Amino acid sequence: MNDIKQPLSDVQLEILKAFSHNLTDEELKEFKETIGKYFADRAIQSANKVWDEKGWTYEDVNSMLQTKMRKSKK
């Protein structure tokens, strides 16, 4: 059996330190929502950057929504 040990990332270590005690159900829910919002905000920022770089308009996006852009696997 291959046992590949990978160290924890800096983020994982900080989260472990910060939450070395049990959270209430409400605290855990808030934590999950905060993490989700953080990553959602980052995704929105990335999408906005591409939008601006490409100079897209709402008409462009509507056109993309009507176009099949995925290629099927065969």
Rank of each mutant, 00 (worst) to 15 (best):
N22M: 01
L28S: 14
L13I: 12
L8Q: 09
E33M: 10
Q66V: 03
S63A: 10
I4K: 15
K5L: 12
E53N: 12
K5N: 15
S72G: 08
M1Q: 10
L65M: 10
D60K: 03
E26Q: 11
K32W: 01
F19I: 06
K74L: 05
Q45D: 14
E59K: 14
V50E: 11
L8I: 05
L23F: 06
G55D: 05
T57P: 13
W51F: 15
A43G: 04
L8G: 07
I44C: 01
D41C: 00
T57W: 04
T24E: 10
F31K: 11
K5G: 08
K29F: 11
Q66F: 00
S46K: 10
Q6H: 12
L23M: 14
K37W: 06
A18H: 04
E27D: 15
T67W: 03
T57H: 07
E53V: 07
P7W: 02
I15C: 09
N48K: 12
K37E: 15
I4D: 14
T24P: 02
T34M: 07
D3M: 08
M1H: 11
I15M: 14
R42Q: 14
D60S: 07
E14V: 03
N48G: 01
N48F: 00
K71Y: 10
E27C: 01
L23E: 09
Y38F: 11
K49H: 09
W56H: 06
F19Q: 07
I4Y: 12
Q12N: 08
E33D: 15
Q45P: 00
L28Y: 13
V50D: 09
L23N: 07
V61K: 09
D25G: 13
E26S: 05
N62D: 11
A43S: 14
R70E: 15
D3W: 07
I35N: 05
E27S: 06
N62F: 04
L65A: 07
T57K: 10
K71I: 12
M64C: 10
D52S: 11
I4F: 11
A43I: 03
K74G: 02
F19W: 12
E53R: 10
D41N: 09
L28F: 13
